[in-house]
Design a protein around this nucleic acid. Structure first.
Lengths: 176, 176
DNA sequence: CTTACCATGTAAGGCGTTACATGATTCA
DNA sequence: TGAATCATGTAACGCCTTACATGGTAAG
C-alpha cells in the first residue's frame, strides 16, 4: 500500500498516514506503528529512497519510490488476490442476538446504520470531487472505482438495516 | 464467538470449527490454533465446562456453557461494537490499478465477481433452509439476519463489478 | 487396508495496534 | 504563550494463522 502511494507522489510517513486515513482506511487501515517500520524496510530493500534533513531527526523525511520499487509494486499487482476478509463485530452480535433480545439487537443495528450513513456521506463527497477532476490524473479513475464500491456497499448496508429493523419489530408484535 | 456457539448447543472444538466455517466465517473466521486455546481459557475462567473422556486425550471433548459464561456473553452483547473492519486486497489492487493497467485490473474484478457469485449461492441456499425451518428455533431468526446482510452485500458487489468492468472497457475505447 | 474424515492440541512466528516518548511549527 | 497540529519513531503486547504432531474411526 505504501509503495502504491509512493508511486503516485513523494510522501512523508505522516502524509502517508493521512492519505490512508482519508482514502484507503475504509478497506485497509494502517497505524504509525506499522508505517514507519515499513518505510525503513522499503529503504533497506531498495524499493524506496529517503530524502530529508538528516541532521534533524524530527524533521520531515520524504520518501520516493525507486525503479526497483515500481517493479515490485507491478509484480504484486499482477499476483492474484490472497486475502479479502471482513471482520464485523456487529454481525457477530446479530448472530447471537437471541441471548440479548430484540431491543438490544435493534440497538446494534441502529448504531451500525448511523456509522454507515456517515461513511456514505464521506464517500459521496469524495465522488463529487473525483468526478469534477476526472481527467486531471489517471489515478483518479482507479480511486473512483473503490469509491463506487464503497457507495454501493454502504447503500446495501442501509437497506439491510431498514429490512432487519422492520423484521425485528414485526416479530416482536407476533411473539410477545 | 465460541461462547455464543456454546449458548446454542454443547459442542466440541472440532464442531465449533465446522460451525464457524459454515455459518460465521464470511464475517468472522477462526482457526484451530485459536479455538483450542480459547476453549482452555474459557474453562479456566469458569465460563465453560469440559465433559469428555478424560482418559483418552484424542477423544471427543464436549464443552458446555456455564451460568457465569452466559452472563459474560450477555454483558459482551450489551457492549457497543468496537470493531467493524474490512480488509480487501482486491480494493487495494483496484486503487493502485494505474500501475497495472486496465486489463489486469479488470482481471481482479472478474476474479472477485466469481468468488462473490459463489458466496452468494451459498447464502441463498442457507436462507432457503432457514426459512423452511423458521419457527423451529428462535436462533434461526438471528442467523437469518446475518444471511440477509450477506445476500444484500454480495448483490451490491456483483452490481459494482458489472459497473466497474463497463467503466474500464469504455475508457479503453476512448483512451487507446 | 487404505482413504477420508473425525479429533485434539502446540510452537513459531507474522502482522499490526496501542501507548509512549520526543520535539518542531503555526497561529490566535 | 499556549493549543493545535505537524512530525518521527520505538517497545510491548495481543491476536491469530500456519505448520506440525498425533492418533481414532468408519466405510468401501
Amino acid at each position: 500500500m505504501i509503495l502504491g502511494l509512493l508511486s503516485h507522489e513523494d510522501l512523508s510517513g505522516y502524509e502517508i498516514k493521512r492519505r490512508i486515513d482519508s482514502s484507503l482506511s475504509y478497506f485497509w487501515g494502517a497505524s504509525y506503528g506499522s508505517i514507519y517500520p515499513t518505510l525503513k524496510e522499503l529503504v533497506e530493500k531498495g524499493y524506496a529512497q529517503r530524502t530529508g534533513d538528516e541532521t534533524n531527526v524530527r524533521n520531515r523525511q520524504v520518501y520516493n519510490i525507486t525503479a526497483s520499487g515500481r517493479e515490485y509494486l507491478k509484480a504484486w499487482l499482477a499476483e492474484p488476490v490472497m486475502r479479502d476478509e471482513i471482520r464485523y463485530e456487529t454481525l457477530l452480535k446479530l448472530f447471537f442476538g437471541k441471548e440479548a433480545g430484540r431491543e438490544q439487537t435493534a440497538g446494534h443495528i441502529r448504531a451500525f446504520r448511523e456509522k454507515t450513513q456517515n461513511n456514505l456521506q464521506n464517500l459521496l463527497a469524495a465522488r463529487q470531487i473525483l468526478e469534477d477532476n476526472r481527467d486531471e490524473d489517471e489515478t483518479h479513475q482507479y480511486y473512483l472505482l473503490t469509491v463506487m464500491f464503497g457507495i454501493r456497499t454502504y447503500r446495501a448496508y442501509l437497506d439491510f438495516c431498514d429490512e432487519a429493523l422492520s423484521v425485528l419489530e414485526t416479530d416482536t408484535r407476533n411473539v410477545n
